[in-house]
């Protein structure tokens, strides 16, 4: 039960119930849809980018608690960051979700993303946690849609 509690911690459940930055973004300059055909999770990530900086980011869609909370935390983390910083954070998050940060000093500076450290114990849920981040990457790269399986 303890691994389960680590996965479904209060912060994640809080974001699931009340996702931040949830809804449309009228003046978005970059948008992508992320879809996991295996489970039907689908999110739209919209960003307003000015001078290589994410001045606003919001998401919409439906999915499991992990994917939704991850999208919510991602929007909080990335608002105000440069595109370069966002890319780096995306790499850090994927390494965190796949357990590659364990025993490294990169664990120390994760901010809110740290609540997802329990995901690595549940390999089949890694895709849930990283869906929004992949979608954000796609939006930055000018792709309309990504699909994970």
């Amino acid at each position: 039960m303890s691994e389960l509690r680590e996965l479904y911690n209060d912060v994640i459940l809080g974001h699931t119930k009340k996702p931040r930055n949830f809804g449309p973004l009228e003046d978005a300059t970059a948008t992508a849809v992320g879809y996991n055909p295996l489970c039907g999770d689908k999110f739209v990530v919209r960003m307003k980018i000015e001078d290589e900086r994410i001045v606003d980011i919001r998401f919409e869609g439906d999915g499991c608690s992990i994917s939704k909370a991850s999208a919510s935390v991602m929007t909080e983390t990335l608002k105000g960051k440069t595109l370069e910083e966002a890319k780096e954070l995306g790499v850090v998050f994927r390494d965190l979700a796949t357990g590659q940060l364990e025993g490294t000093d990169r664990l120390d500076d994760l901010g809110k993303m740290a609540v997802f450290s329990g995901v690595s114990e549940f390999p089949v849920r890694v895709k849930c946690a990283t869906l929004a981040w992949h979608t954000m990457d796609a939006a930055m790269a000018g792709k309309d849609e990504i699909s994970t399986e």
């Binding site: 996965l7 479904y8 039907g40 999915g63 499991c64 608690s65 849920r125």
Partner: peptide, 28 residues
């Protein structure tokens, strides 16, 4: 509660069920 979350928690109790669209998306 999303079915995937149900599946993970049931698994922690030893209970194996399928979650997803069951290759029948028009039914979903």
């Amino acid at each position: 509660i999303h079915p995937h979350d149900i599946g993970t928690i049931l698994d922690s109790e030893g209970v194996a069920v399928r979650t997803g669209h069951h290759c029948a998306q028009p039914v979903m």
